[in-house]
Amino acid sequence: MGIERFERMGWKNRTFDVLNAVFLIVLMLTMIVPFLNVAALAFSSGMASMRPDIILFPKDFSVEGFATVWHSLDLKRPFANSVIVTVAGTALHVLLSSMAGYVLIQPHLPGKKIMVSFILLTMMIPQDAILIPLYLVNKDLHLINTLGSLILSGMISGFSILLMRNYFLGVPYEMSESAQIDGAGPLRIFASMYMRLAKTGLATVTLFEFVSRWNMLTAPVLFINDPAKNTLQVALKSMIVDASATSSNFLVTTNVRMAGILISIIPLLAIYPFVQRYFMKGLMLGANKE
C-alpha cells in the first residue's frame, strides 16, 4: 500500500517535471527565436531579407547590411557618442556615488541623518515631475545639444549611493580605524582601502549604470536635436521604427535594420558574463535589504 502510493507519487512527479520543463523551454524559445530571427535577417542580402521566408537561418548570406548601416547610414557616429556618454557617465557615477556611500558609513558624523533623508527623498521624486524643468535647467546651463547634458543626466543616484553604502558596511571598520591611527586621511582610506575591498559592489553598480546608460532614451530625446550629437538608441529608433513606417529610404532594407539592432546589443552581450556574476548577486542583495 505504502509502496503503491509512493510509486503513484513518483509517476505524478515525473509527469509534472516533464510538463514543467516543457513550459520553461517554450518560454525560453520565445526569447531565443526572435533573436535568431534578427541575426538570420541581418546576415542575409538586402533582397532576400525583404521576403517573409527567413526564420532561423540567413538566405543568400552577406554582411552588406552591416556595411550599409555602419558607413552609408553613418551609425558609427551615434555609436561613438554612446560610447563616450556611457564610459564617462558610468565612471563619474560610480566614483561620486561610492564617495557618498563611504561618507554615509562614518559613525558619529554630525548631520548624517539629514544627508540620508536628503538622498532618500530624491528617490521619491517622480521622473515626470521634473521632465520639463530638467529641460529648462539644461537650457539655462547651455547644455542642450551637448553630450555633457547626457553625462550629467543621472550622474548620481540615491539607489547607487545606498547600494555602495551596503557594500562598504561589509568592510570591517577596525581596518579603517587602524589606518586612521597611521595618519591616513578619509580620502586615502576611501581610495586605497574601500574601493579595493568592495570590488563586488563596484562591479555591480558599474554594470547597472553601463546598461542603463547604453539604453538611455528619455534624456537624449529631451536634450538633443542635433543629429551629430545623437546617441545610438535615438539613431536606431529613427532607423528601425520611423523608417519602417514611411519606408521612403531605399537604403533601409530589413537586413540593414537588423544589423543595426545587432551592433547595438554587442556591447551588452560582451558584458553579460560579468552581469551574470555580479549584477544578479547585486539584485539579490538589493532585494533582501529592502
Binding site: 534578427v38 539604453n215 532614451l217 538608441q233 529608433k237 528601425i240 521604427v241 535594420r257 539592432i261 546589443i265
Partner: peptide, 10 residues
C-alpha cells in the same frame, strides 16, 4: 538587458 528601442523594434 536590452533597450526599449531594440525590444520595441523587434
Amino acid at each position: 538587458l536590452l533597450s526599449w528601442v531594440v525590444i520595441g523594434g523587434i
